Simulated scan of single mutants.
Amino acid sequence: MTPPLLIAEGLSKQYGTTRVVSDVGLSIARGEILGLVGESGSGKSTVARMLLRLIEPTSGTVRFDGLDVLHANRAEMKALRRRMGVVFQDPFAALDPRMRVRDILAEPFAIHGDGTLRGNAMETKLTAMLQEVGLDAAALARYPHEFSGGQRQRINIARALALAPEFLVLDEPVSALDVSVGAQVINLLRDLQRTRGLTCLFISHSMPLVRYLCDRVAVMQRGCLVEVGDAVTICEHPCEAYTQALIAATPEFALPTR
């Protein structure tokens, strides 16, 4: 049996006397989409940032493909960064307004020193990246403010996939978009996950959305996991009162039946 791509055990985060995440354990299989759900302030994004080592946990362990993420040195972390991507909630704040799309998409290659892409080869690569997310080459010369929210999120997705990561964190990627545009982005993400064989952590507060997109779901309340299991099963037969309340509080999302 293939081991999970990512395993976290005992993850906790404390700021002063306030504990925002307490003893969280997760595993994500290769090619799986795990949904992490809960109300605002439940600790979902903090968990995701600890998995990526964007913030250091107070305690706990994270292993990615057998590698100890939290004790990796600078060189090891740089190599790991190539294998991980993230799409943030706010599609405008995640893009530098002073940079053209061409430079935004080329930045990961510059940071990780890929000297094989230059001139026409780089232009061809960047164009292909845009086409994969439903945009055309004309976007390369434009600035973020010239795009709609949905288009900006597509640019963010293209950048996150630039180095062909194996693991992608999707931190409420459609919560800042209107319903119809969000549905288009969700379907794009589902198609990309399937064609690329991505392993994903999908953070959301929408149970219907998680049911549609995810294989399994982990439910967080006040920094703790309260329920983990098959996404359809939990959405249809939740055991915890908190999960039942989340389902009751979430309107149906405008997506086709799974």
Rank of each mutant, 00 (worst) to 15 (best):
D171H: 12
G149C: 05
P165V: 07
R81P: 03
R118P: 02
A128S: 14
D114N: 11
H71Q: 15
F88R: 08
G66Q: 06
V86L: 09
G85S: 12
M129Y: 07
H145E: 13
L168V: 06
G85P: 06
G85N: 13
P108Q: 09
D96Y: 10
F64N: 00
N120A: 15
R142K: 14
R81M: 06
V133D: 05
E146D: 10
D96Q: 10
L126Q: 01
E76N: 13
R154A: 02
F147Y: 13
P165T: 03
H71S: 15
F88M: 12
L95Q: 07
I104S: 01
E123W: 02
R63P: 01
A137P: 01
S148P: 08
L117P: 01
H112Q: 05
Q89I: 03
I155R: 03
A93L: 08
A106H: 00
R82N: 04
P165G: 08
R154W: 02
R154F: 02
R152P: 09
N120H: 14
F167V: 11
P173G: 03
P144N: 08
G134H: 14
P91A: 11
I111A: 08
R74Y: 07
G115C: 12
M99A: 14
E172I: 09
S148G: 10
S148K: 07
R102M: 03
I157A: 07
A138K: 13
L168P: 01
V86K: 01
E107A: 11
L170Y: 11
T61N: 07
N120G: 14
I155K: 02
I111C: 04
V174D: 09
R82V: 07
L117H: 06
V62I: 09
S148V: 09
I155W: 02
L161N: 04
M129I: 07
R159A: 00
D65L: 11
T116C: 10
Q153I: 06
L168D: 02
A94W: 07
T61D: 14
R82T: 11
D171Y: 09
H145D: 11
S175P: 05
R100K: 13
M122I: 04
L117R: 10
R154L: 03
L70E: 10
L130H: 01
T116G: 13
R74F: 08
D90I: 11
P165F: 01
R98M: 14
T116K: 14
T124L: 09
R154S: 05
S175Q: 10
M84P: 08
G119C: 09
Q131T: 09
L135D: 05
P173E: 07
E107K: 08
V62F: 04
N120F: 05
M122L: 13
F64K: 00
F92G: 02
E132F: 05
A106T: 00
A72Y: 08
N73G: 15
A158L: 00
